[in-house]
């Protein structure tokens, strides 16, 4: 794999004697969508603030494309485009004037580049309106546009889907996919929307109380070979499930099977004259994983 685009080495943040981030280390590779997941107050925003230089790092270091965020701020930030929490813009300026503000701050951003970015986020029609007339979704788009102006290697987005409707969320997701595919950008997104993360991320880190509790590839468990399937059936006796791991649930059974075994199982039921009302895979979702990890394994009612 290519060299890491973002590297956190034992990052710790103490605010007023309280450890908010505790010895966080991970790396993000080129072209990867990296999810940053955790319950409220876990420290996602704080970590992101340190990555973009808004907050100092108490100990440890953060490297962006090999440049230390604190010591080589300008060189490091050259590679970052970001949104931290809500993308607040100058409301008394138009969207375009806002983008011009940011464009002037970095050398070599042409008018065409701005138009291109505006087109990309789909804000062409409203770009010359004042930002105070924008809806939240439009402001998110403008925020995204602002972060793309200088073709950064890494996009850091703190809850980019916050406040968006499902269509908006889907659109952001498509944008991010396009960016990673077409431009080879890496993307870091934070969220507590689990299903969301599952759909857009390649890898997800779960943090809680400022500590990294788990980090893994999404398809590792989404494409797990063995999976649970829910069968809505009435079984008079469970002998038919001999040797197959199952669990009785409300209205039916959860049965753990390989994908190829599913048709066989259905056949088996039909041959035994058992009516099947519904069969569906129970994806072992990130949510389960999230709950497992963040509640320390205890079952949730």
């Amino acid at each position: 794999m290519a060299s890491p685009v973002v590297q956190l080495n034992h990052v710790t943040k103490v605010i007023k004697g309280k450890k908010i981030i505790d010895d966080l280390s991970f790396t993000i590779e080129e072209g990867e969508v990296f999810g940053f997941l955790g319950p409220n107050g876990a420290g996602k925003t704080t970590t992101i603030r340190m990555m973009v230089g808004l907050m100092g790092i108490t100990s440890g270091e953060i490297l962006i494309c090999g440049k230390n965020v604190e010591k080589e701020f300008e060189a490091a930030l050259m590679n970052i485009g970001g949104i931290v929490e809500n993308p607040e813009m100058y409301k008394f300026l138009t969207g375009y004037q806002n983008l011009m503000q940011y464009a002037r701050m970095i050398k070599g951003i042409s008018k065409q580049k701005i138009d291109e970015v505006v087109e990309f986020v789909g804000l062409k029609e409203r770009i010359h309106d004042k930002v105070k007339t924008y809806s939240l979704g439009m402001r998110q788009r403008l925020g995204l546009a602002q972060s793309l102006l200088h073709d950064p290697k890494v996009m850091i987005l703190d809850e980019p889907t916050n406040g968006l409707d499902p269509a908006g969320i889907r659109e952001i997701r498509d944008h991010l996919k396009k960016l990673t595919k077409e431009k080879g950008m890496s993307v870091i997104v934070s969220s507590h929307l689990l299903s969301e993360m599952e759909m857009m991320c390649d890898r997800i880190a779960i943090i809680q109380n400022g500590k990294l509790v788990d980090i893994q590839k999404v398809h590792d468990y989404v494409n797990d070979t063995k999976q649970k399937y829910f069968f809505e059936v009435n079984l008079e006796n469970v002998g038919i499930l001999d040797n197959i791991p199952y669990e009785k649930v409300d209205k039916g059974y959860e049965i753990e099977l390989e994908k190829e075994e599913v048709p066989k199982m259905i056949q088996k039921f039909t041959e035994a004259g058992i009516s099947i009302y519904e069969v569906k895979p129970i994806a072992k979702t990130l949510e389960d994983r999230f709950m497992e990890v963040t509640t320390g394994g205890e079952k949730h009612a």
Binding site: V52, L54, E74, L77, E85, Y90, Y102, I106
Partner: peptide, 14 residues
């Protein structure tokens, strides 16, 4: 006050 300080300070400018 506007919250724009964040986007202002994450430019590659000291």
């Amino acid at each position: 006050g506007w919250g724009t300080i964040k986007l202002l300070l994450i430019r590659p400018i000291k």
